[in-house]
Amino acid sequence: MEYQPVSRKLILGRYIAYGIVLVVLAIAIAAGALLWTPWLWLAMLVLVIYAGWQAWLIPVQVGATGWREDERELVISKGRMWHSLVVIPYNRIQYVDISRGPIATKLGYADVQVHTAAVVDSTIPGVPLEQAEHLRARFSQRLS
């Protein structure tokens, strides 16, 4: 079976979230470099390198995230370098949450978190909103 990919809008959402943090850090570093010591410009260089790394990494991470539903279980796959594969039997699911912040709401996606008794990362990020609601409804039906 093929994995369902997450929404490509998740890439833009993560760029916006990381971008806000990086801009605030860049302003703080620039102010420190101008007011105290020019050595802080090295921190700005590190920040620029980190921003470039994230610009490359985010689409790779999003492209490597997906899920599939079998007859008896949900399978969540994440990552390429540090791959994680979470298999959740339907009879172990306790409840399902859908969450979305302001960026996700604007871009039309949500995170689906499947809760079990075990403590595992069972979140599917960036699911299109309509599909997330269908997932929650299907899982809730299986729980009944």
Rank of each mutant, 00 (worst) to 15 (best):
E69D: 12
I27Y: 04
V120F: 15
W39G: 15
V119K: 13
S140I: 08
E130H: 13
Y18H: 09
R14Q: 15
S84H: 14
L12Y: 03
K78D: 03
L135F: 05
R8N: 10
S77Y: 08
E2Y: 08
T37F: 12
E130F: 10
P89E: 05
W82T: 13
S144K: 15
Q4K: 11
P59I: 07
L57E: 11
A28N: 07
F139R: 02
S77R: 15
P5E: 07
Q61W: 13
L129M: 10
V120Q: 14
R92F: 03
A55D: 03
A30C: 06
L47W: 02
L45A: 15
V119L: 14
D97E: 12
L74H: 01
V48Q: 07
L22A: 11
R142S: 08
G63L: 06
D121N: 15
V119S: 15
A117I: 06
Q61G: 11
P59M: 05
V120G: 08
A64Q: 12
R68G: 10
A64W: 09
A17V: 12
E133L: 12
A28F: 07
H83W: 06
Y18D: 09
V62T: 07
L129P: 00
G79R: 08
A28S: 06
L12R: 04
L135S: 00
V21T: 08
L143D: 05
L57I: 07
V23T: 05
T123Q: 06
E133C: 04
N91A: 12
I93W: 02
E133F: 07
L85R: 13
Y95K: 06
R136M: 05
Q141T: 12
E71K: 09
V127L: 01
R136P: 02
L40C: 02
A51R: 00
H83P: 04
V119D: 09
I29Q: 02
A26G: 06
M44Q: 04
H134N: 08
L57R: 10
E71G: 09
G66E: 01
A31Y: 11
V62F: 01
Q131G: 03
E133A: 06
L40A: 05
A28W: 05
S84F: 14
L135V: 02
I58L: 04
W36M: 04
G63S: 11
P89H: 06
P5Y: 02
E130G: 12
G63T: 10
P125Y: 02
T123E: 05
W39S: 12
I11N: 01
V46W: 11
Q94E: 14
V112N: 02
V119C: 02
W56F: 14
G101I: 03
I76W: 01
V87L: 13
T123P: 02
G108T: 05
T105Q: 15
W39L: 14
A31H: 09
Q131W: 00
A17G: 10
Y109M: 03
I20C: 03
W39P: 04
W67S: 04
N91V: 11
P128G: 03
I103H: 00
G126A: 01
G19V: 03
L12Q: 05
D97M: 06
G79W: 04
M44P: 00
V120W: 06
H115E: 05
K9Q: 09
Y15P: 00
G101P: 03
